[in-house]
Each structure stands twice: as C-alpha cells, then as structure tokens.
C-alpha cells in the first residue's frame, strides 16, 4: 500500500507510538509483581518483535 499524498506526522507516528507505549508498559509491569504480571510483560515485549517479523514477511520483493 502506498499512500498518494504526504502523510501527516500523526499518521506516521501512530503505530510506532503505540508499540513504544506497549513496550514501556511491558518493561515496567514485570517489576511490580511475579506470576500473571510477568506473562503480561512477555506479551507486551513480543509486540515490537512481532511487528518486525510482520514487516519482513510482507516485504515487497
């Protein structure tokens, strides 16, 4: 998908900001408790990695 017009900054940074927020939450919550909260942080820190894998899999060849 290639947008025709110039994208506004809010669009360019929407997904990156969401990923950063999820990552930051994941980094902090595991400090607070053990058990379930650890699983939350595992899920959260998987997000940037999955985003990278997703991007690579749909690369334009």
């Amino acid at each position: 998908m290639k947008p025709r017009t110039r994208l506004p900054l809010s669009t360019i940074f929407a997904i990156p900001a969401a990923i950063a927020l999820v990552t930051g939450t994941g980094l902090v919550v595991a400090l607070l408790d053990d058990g379930l909260v650890d699983a939350v942080s595992w899920a959260a820190l998987s997000v940037p990695i999955l985003a990278a894998v997703w991007s690579w899999r749909r690369r334009e060849r």
């Binding site: 990156p16 990923i19 950063a20 940037p48 985003a51 990278a52 991007s55 334009e60 060849r61």
Partner: peptide, 28 residues
C-alpha cells in the same frame, strides 16, 4: 508503516529495514 522494499537495490532494502527495526525497538 513497516514497508520494506526488498526487491530493488540492496541499499533500499537495508534502509527500510534499518528504519523499521529502529522504530519498533525504540522504547526497548
């Protein structure tokens, strides 16, 4: 977001990868 143009030059592929990986791992 997440565009990786791997089919043209090597430099463009690595530029896109650099940008994509850089922005997703930013917070970590």
């Amino acid at each position: 977001f997440g565009t990786v143009r791997a089919g043209r030059s090597a430099r463009l592929k690595w530029l896109d990868l650099h940008n994509m990986l850089g922005i997703v791992t930013l917070m970590w």
